[in-house]
Computed example of a mutant assay.
Amino acid sequence: MKNSNKLICVLVPVVSVLLAFAIGCAVMAFLGANPLTALQSLWTGAFGNLRNVGTTLSRATPLIFTGLCACFAYRCGVFNLGGEGQFIIGSVACCYVATQSGIEGLPAIILCLIAGALAGGLWALIPGLLKVYRGQNEMIISIMLNYVATLFMGVVYTNWLREGSVPQTMSVPDATKLSRLFGLRATTAFVIAIAAGLLVYYFLFYTSKGFQLRAVGLNMTAAEFNGFAVKRYILFSFVVSGVIAGLGGSAELLGTQYRLINGFASGYGFDGVAMALIAQLHPLATILVAIFFAALRVGSTTMQAATGVPTSVSDIIQALVIVFTVAGLAMVKLPQFKAAIDRLFTRKEAATS
């Protein structure tokens, strides 16, 4: 039965992607385009050459960070929807250190990354404390803090750290920018994101503390009766998820954006939640899903130029993947569906024995 559950968990997102692309192809055909040509253009735009691969990995990097942020918190049974705000606060702290400290080079990079991670962790601690000690809804608080962080960033780039008459901060020094990978647009920020994903995976599935954190997420009441420090794990999950998002904000600023401007990090937080849900809260799967979504977004431009299919079709496919995955996961949890699957695998085992 355990193998059947694992198989279903893998099949749900795969089938969701196939259904979404099938409907996307139908839309393309309705618009008068050849679906096969459009899909080929989509692939070429995302992975056709090293330059496009670098662009895809660069676009995937912030999604990986915010996806891991949501994944870690959800594993503890809490809903951190403030990944975008924590990402922004991390980038603000990074920008301040990079432009105002006077330090450059590798020491500045390390200091900026640490400052961003700490800022993101402290920002995430706010909804955690309010949930644990005041019983407040962490989803509402974390969402509201996203707006606070965005407005705070606006004050920074339009007032406190504004560069001349332009509503933006000054660029980080060249010596403090993250180096590019093999001359591509992707930078070492992608390497940091992969390392973060591997660390989260190792902690959750290969350490006793990670097991206890997942146990709290599965059943807080049972975990508390078994002596687990539930409140401590909840706060820990918020802080760590915030650290991941804040680190992502720092890496994005040093690797791609270089300065704070209007619209920076817009939508990254909720995109990350979608990545985590489609990946079923698995850190390594979250990385793959983030790269998949980035490929859709990068390749859609080439698809439009080659076939005339608007980039909004790519958005439709992304939305359908999310809808089908969430619906599929909800369906497999129904008692009737579980009973049907158990009967199917029982018959199969009986026939082979």
Rank of each mutant, 00 (worst) to 15 (best):
M331A: 15
P167T: 08
L254A: 04
V148T: 07
N5F: 08
I192F: 13
A245H: 03
A265V: 05
D271Q: 12
L145K: 01
E224L: 12
N137F: 04
P35T: 10
F228A: 15
Y133A: 01
T286G: 12
D315H: 07
E84W: 07
V97F: 14
A22K: 09
C69F: 00
F21R: 01
G83H: 02
I126S: 03
P310V: 01
G255K: 03
G77P: 12
S312R: 07
I244V: 11
Y74W: 14
L329W: 12
A189M: 07
L7V: 10
C76I: 02
G128R: 00
R134L: 13
F21E: 02
N49L: 09
V12C: 04
V17F: 05
L118E: 11
N34A: 07
L106V: 14
C95R: 06
A229V: 07
G227N: 08
L218Q: 13
V156K: 06
Y74G: 07
R185W: 03
F264N: 08
R347G: 15
V132H: 03
V191L: 15
A295E: 10
V216C: 10
M220L: 12
M303D: 09
L11I: 09
L19I: 04
A124H: 08
I110T: 06
L296F: 13
Y147I: 06
L68N: 02
V332A: 03
F337A: 15
V53I: 15
G255V: 01
I143A: 00
M303L: 08
F182H: 12
K131G: 00
V230S: 04
M153W: 02
W43Q: 14
G128H: 00
W160N: 06
G197F: 05
A119M: 05
G90M: 10
I261A: 14
L68Q: 01
E349A: 13
N146M: 09
L81Y: 03
T187M: 06
F270L: 14
A305F: 09
G77D: 10
G210L: 05
C71H: 10
L235I: 05
A26C: 11
T44Q: 15
T207G: 05
Q304N: 11
A339I: 05
S314I: 02
V78E: 05
A290L: 05
V172C: 08
N5W: 10
I109K: 08
V200Q: 06
Q86E: 12
T66K: 03
L11S: 07
Q168D: 10
A340P: 04
E138P: 00
F270G: 01
K2F: 13
F324R: 00
A305V: 14
T301C: 11
